[in-house]
Lab assay of single mutants.
Amino acid sequence: MTGIVKWFNADKGFGFITPDDGSKDVFVHFSAIQNDGYKSLDEGQKVSFTIESGAKGPAAGNVTSL
Rank of each mutant, 00 (worst) to 15 (best):
F27S: 02
S23G: 14
G22R: 06
Q45Y: 05
T64R: 14
Y38L: 12
N62A: 09
G15I: 02
S23R: 08
D36E: 14
Q45H: 07
F30V: 10
S65C: 13
M1I: 10
S40K: 14
K56V: 08
Y38C: 15
S40P: 06
Y38T: 11
G13S: 03
T50P: 01
Q34Y: 08
V47C: 04
G61L: 13
V5K: 00
D11V: 15
V26R: 02
D21L: 06
F27E: 02
S48P: 00
S23Q: 08
D25C: 07
A60Y: 02
Q45V: 09
T50W: 09
S40Q: 10
G54H: 13
K46A: 11
G57Q: 06
I17K: 00
A59F: 15
F16Y: 08
A59C: 15
K56G: 11
A60H: 02
I51C: 06
K39P: 09
F8Y: 12
E43H: 14
T2S: 08
Y38R: 11
N35M: 15
G3N: 00
V47Y: 02
V5L: 04
I33D: 02
I51A: 04
P58M: 11
I4D: 03
W7S: 04
Y38K: 13
G3F: 01
D21E: 06
S53M: 15
W7H: 04
V28M: 05
G61T: 14
T2Q: 08
E43G: 14
F27D: 00
S48A: 13
F8D: 00
A55D: 12
S31I: 05
K24A: 14
A59Y: 15
K24D: 12
F49M: 04
G44L: 04
G57C: 07
N62H: 10
A60L: 02
S48D: 04
L41R: 01
I17N: 00
D36R: 10
G37H: 09
T18V: 13
V5G: 01
K46F: 10
G61S: 14
D42W: 14
M1N: 08
K6V: 05
E43A: 15
V63R: 01
Y38W: 14
K39H: 08
M1C: 10
D42A: 14
G15V: 02
V28L: 07
A59I: 14
N35D: 13
V26W: 03
S48C: 12
D42F: 15
K6I: 06
L41V: 05
P58A: 10
T2G: 04
I51W: 08
N35A: 14
S48H: 12
H29I: 04
K12M: 12
M1Q: 10
G15T: 01
V26I: 13
A32L: 03
G37D: 09
I33S: 03
K46V: 10
F27W: 08
S53E: 13
G61H: 14
S53Q: 14
G13A: 03
N35V: 13
I33W: 06
G57H: 08
P19H: 03
D21V: 07
Q45N: 07
K56Q: 11
A60V: 04
F30W: 15
K6A: 07
G61Q: 14
K46T: 08
Q45D: 12
F27N: 01
I17L: 07
G57D: 04
F49L: 03
K46W: 12
S40I: 13
V47R: 00
W7G: 02
T2M: 09
D20T: 08
D42Y: 15
P19L: 06
A10H: 14
V5I: 08
G15Y: 02
G37F: 09
V47D: 00
A60K: 02
V26K: 03
G57N: 07
G3Q: 00
S31D: 04
N62M: 12
S23D: 07
K6Q: 04
F8W: 14
A55V: 13
T18Q: 11
F8Q: 01
S40N: 09
F30Y: 14
I33Q: 03
D42K: 15
I51L: 12
S23A: 08
Q34R: 11
K46I: 11
G57W: 09
